[in-house]
Design a protein around this nucleic acid. Structure first.
Lengths: 187, 187, 187, 187
DNA sequence: AATGAATGAGATTTCATTCAT
DNA sequence: AATGAATGAAATCTCATTCAT
C-alpha cells in the first residue's frame, strides 16, 4: 500500500504540482480514505521527502556503479553518467520532474539530508572531471566545479522537454550530449 | 502600485513558491489590503502571468539586440547570448527562478502565449547554431536542436546555484560556459 | 442618469437577483464607474427601495383611477383591477418580478413605507369586494379579506410564468381570470 | 447531522434569504465548523438544491395520494389538493417560502430537474381540472391550463401572508379558497 | 458630475490533519 | 489496517462603500 501511495502520488505531483495535488486527490485515485494515508505517512511533506530520497538514492547507487567500473577511462565514465541521468528521466519519469521542481516544499532536517545527497552526486561528477584532468584525458584549464554544474544543468534540463515516447531515444540524446561535452573538455 | 505589487510578489514567490505565498503575504509586505491587490490584478494567476511575460519579453528583446549586431561572428553571438542569460539570472534575480520553476500554475491561453515565446527564444538560439554551421564556424555533425537544449539547460540551471553575491561574477561563469560550448562545437 | 441606473438595475436584478447583481455589474452595463453610482444613490438598498416605490406608486395610481371611475359596477372595477395587474406584469416587466421577489432586502423605515403601500393596495381590492357585497353584486358569505388575498395571489403569480412575447396576451389572461373570479363570487 | 444542517438552513434561508445567510451563520447555529458543512455538502448551492428537491418530492407524493383516492369526485380531489398546498405552507413552513422565493440561485442540471418536477405538479392539477370538465363537474369553457395557474398562484401566495399561529387555520383558508374556485368553475 | 484608488469586512471553499472506532 | 466524521486555519476572491481629486 505504501508503495502504491508513492506511485500514484508521483503521477499526481508531476501533473498538478505538489501544492496543488491534495491528499484527497491521492486517496481518491487509490479508492481509499485519508485515514489510510495517515496510517502510512506522518504528513504530506514526509511523502515528498520519501519520493526525493528514493530518487536520489537510486541515482547515487547508479552513479557509484559506473564510477567503480574497472578498466574504464574517465571519459567513458563521464559518458556513462550522462547516459544514466537522461535514462533516469526517461525511466523514472515523474520522480525526476518532482525532484527538480519541488525541492522548495521540504524543510528542516529532511531538506538538509537531501541537499547533502544532491551535493554528493554533483561532487562525484566533479571528481570524475578532476581525475580525468589529472590523467590528461580532459583539458585542465577549466574549473571542474563549473563544468560539473554545466553538465548537470544540461542533462537535468532534459526533464523539461524530453518525452520518453517521442522520436528520440534516451541513448541518442545522451550520445549527442556526451560527444559535445567530451569535445568541449578536450585539449 | 502595480509595479510595487509585482516587485514584492517576485521576492515572495521566489522565497516560498507560488502556491505557498499567499495574497495576504503579498499585501502585508506592502502594507495595503487585499482589495488593493484585486483592484490591480484579476487573480493570482494573472499576476504570475504578468511576471512571466515581463521576463520572457525582456529576454527576447535582449536576445534580438545581440543577434542583430552587425560585424559579429556566430561564435561571438552565441557567447553574447550565454552571457546575457546568466546575467539575467543575476540581475532579474527572482524573476528567473520563478520563470523556471512556476510554469505549472499558468493555464489556458496565458500558458499558450508564454510557451510560444519561450519556444521562440530557444529556436533563436538554435538558429544561431545553424547559421554558424553553415558559415563553418561550428561543426555540423551535431543536431542543432539538441545543442540548443543543452546550452539553454546548462545556463538556465545556474538559477539553482548561482549567487549574485557569491565569489563568482556572472561574466566569469559565462566565460567558462562559452569556452566550453564553443570548444565543444568546434571541428 | 438616475433613471438610466434604475432602468439597467431592474434588468440586472431581475436576471441575477438583487444580492447577486453587484454595483460593478450595474455600472459596467452603463459604462460608468462606481463613484457615479454613489453620486446618485446613497446605497444599494436605496436603489432597491426606489424601484419598489416607483412600482407600488404606479400601481396605486392606476388602481385609484379605476376605482374612481363613475358609472361602473363593482364587478367591472374588479375586472379592471385584474386586467391592470396582469398588464403591469407585461408592461413593467422586471419591476414586477423584483417587486414580488426581493422585499426581503429592504429594512427599517423603507420597509415599513413599502409594506404600508402594499397593504393599501390589497385593502383597496378588499374594499371593492366589500362594497360589491353590500350592493348585492357579490355573494356575501365569503370573507372579503381572504378573497382579496386569493385574487392578488393568482394575478401576482403570473410573474412566474407569463411571457409578454408568448402566445397569450395580457387581455386574454385577464379575461379568463376575471370570468373565473366573478363567477366564483356570484351568488 | 446532514438533516440537522438542512433543518437549520431552512430557518436561516427563510429569515434572511439564501444569499444573505452565510455558511458561517449556519454552522454557528449548529455549533460546528465550516469544515463540517463541507463534509456533507459540496456547496451552498447543493444544499439549496436538496431543500428544493425534498419539498417538491414531498408535494408530488402528497398530490399523488390525493389523486389516486378511489370513490372521490374531481371536485373533492381539487379541494383536497388545495387543502394540502395550504397545509404544506403551514407545516413545512420555511421550506415553502424558500421554494417559492429562491429558485434563481439554482442552475444547470439541478435547475432543470426541479423545474421539471414543478411542472409535473402543475400539470397534475391541470389534469384534474380537465378530467372534471370531461365528467361534467366543471364548466368546460375556461382553459384548464390558465385555471391551474390561477389556483396554484392563489394557494402559493399564501406563503406571503399566512401565519400558522395566526387567527386562521389552514383548513379555514382552504375551505374558503376551495369554495371560491369550485363555484367559479361551476356551470 | 464623475473618477479611480483604496478599504475592510466577510463570503465560499479547501485541505492537511486528528482521532475514536 | 482502515474508516469517516470533524476541525480549524487559511486561501482566494467579492463587494458595498468612501474619499480626494
Amino acid at each position: 500500500m505504501k508503495e502504491k501511495i508513492i506511485k500514484h502520488s508521483i503521477a499526481l505531483f508531476e501533473a498538478k504540482g505538489f501544492s496543488e495535488a491534495s491528499i484527497q486527490d491521492i486517496v481518491d485515485t487509490l479508492g481509499v480514505t485519508k485515514g489510510t494515508f495517515y496510517y502510512y505517512f506522518a504528513s504530506k511533506d514526509q511523502l515528498l521527502t520519501q519520493i526525493h530520497l528514493q530518487y536520489i538514492d537510486y541515482m547515487l547507487e547508479e552513479q557509484r556503479r559506473i564510477i567503480e567500473q574497472p578498466d574504464r577511462t574517465w571519459r567513458e565514465k563521464l559518458s556513462g553518467i550522462i547516459l544514466m541521468m537522461i535514462r533516469a528521466i526517461e525511466g523514472q519519469g515523474g520522480s525526476a520532474r518532482i525532484f527538480f521542481r519541488e525541492l522548495l516544499h521540504i524543510t528542516g532536517d529532511n531538506l538538509a539530508a537531501i541537499k547533502q545527497k544532491r551535493d554528493r552526486f554533483r561532487l562525484n561528477v566533479q571528481s570524475v572531471l578532476e581525475r580525468g584532468m589529472e590523467s590528461g584525458e580532459f583539458r585542465n584549464d577549466l574549473p571542474a566545479d563549473m563544468m560539473a554544474f554545466s553538465i548537470l544543468g544540461a542533462c537535468n534540463w532534459c526533464y523539461t522537454w524530453f518525452k520518453p515516447d517521442g522520436p528520440l531515444s534516451d541513448a541518442e540524446v545522451a550520445a549527442v550530449y556526451a560527444e559535445m561535452f567530451l569535445n568541449g573538455m578536450s585539449k
